[in-house]
Amino acid sequence: MDLVKILIDAGRTAVGVPAAAYALSSIGLNLQFGYTGLLNFGHVASMLVGAYGMAITVDSGGPLWLGVIVGIVAALILGLILGVPTLRLRADYLAIVTIAAGEILRLTVRSSWAAPLTKGIFGIQQFADPFFDVNPIPVGLYGIGRFRFDERTMWVLLLGWGLVALATLFMWKLTRSPWGRAIRAIRDDEDAALSLGKNVFGYKLQSLMVGGAIGALAGMFLAIDQQNVNPDAYIPLLTFYAFTIVILGGPGTLFGPIIGSIIFWFLFEFLDGFMTAAVLEGWFGDVLDSTDIGPIRFALFGIGLMWLMIYRPQGLFGRREEMLIGEQ
């Protein structure tokens, strides 16, 4: 087993496109879940509307920049539509409605009814050419040894981590303000916030919408990298990647999503490489074969999420006092 190769591959993923995309997506979810306490189980829906808003706009002849605006606006509207009926109710209702809405949205985009616009199960491709046309990075490979990216990936990464940096700056401004204090108060105790004159519903709605818009950016970024949107990519699992990342990095912390995403993708990729090598070397005999690696990785992911939530709800590096999350 070439452990060095597996580690390097995992490291490349940890700073690569998925890590950047999910850091961004998790920043949005962190605003909703980490700071405001909203149990949004349909975060993937905002990624979907972002990506599709952009892809459909370009596909119908619009410019890419307009597509980005459409994607963001679509996510804001989605937050409004989901939030209004549910945000006055308990946390679990929001969770139920959002996970359901995400699935419904995916099925709708996939349906033959919406196909004239969304191209159904085939999805939309090649809409981000204008972005790659302006790539200023000279052709070549950048990095050391196996740890290298080509100029296309470098350009995408620049966009991705650039967006992450901007979103973090935005969050810094927002969460260090009295607005940020108000949403944290709501997270800790809604009734107390109400009794102090805070418009809890309004704050939650703002948080849901803004977090969704950041999620939409992440969706667009992934779509640009792949030059492809396809309904079956937007499964609920994506939401729970983001949840795991938020909890891993520490909910309600500024850099949590970034740290969480890097660690998450490193572990996830390492597990994959390690298990694949182990199966190839026959460690598991006839019990497991290579097709089982995917499912096992997801089962382990589930165990990891449970373990984190039970033993480290404040994140891997969180302080003990912050353990009080969600506890009475």
Binding site: F41, P295, I296, G304, L305, W307, I310, I325, G326
Partner: peptide, 22 residues
């Protein structure tokens, strides 16, 4: 808390589901 328990149940659902898939 309630929220933490719900997230734990999500994790558990992944474990059961993918174990069944294997």
């Amino acid at each position: 808390g309630l929220v933490a328990m719900i997230v734990v149940s999500i994790g558990l659902s992944f474990v059961i589901r993918y174990a069944i898939l294997v």
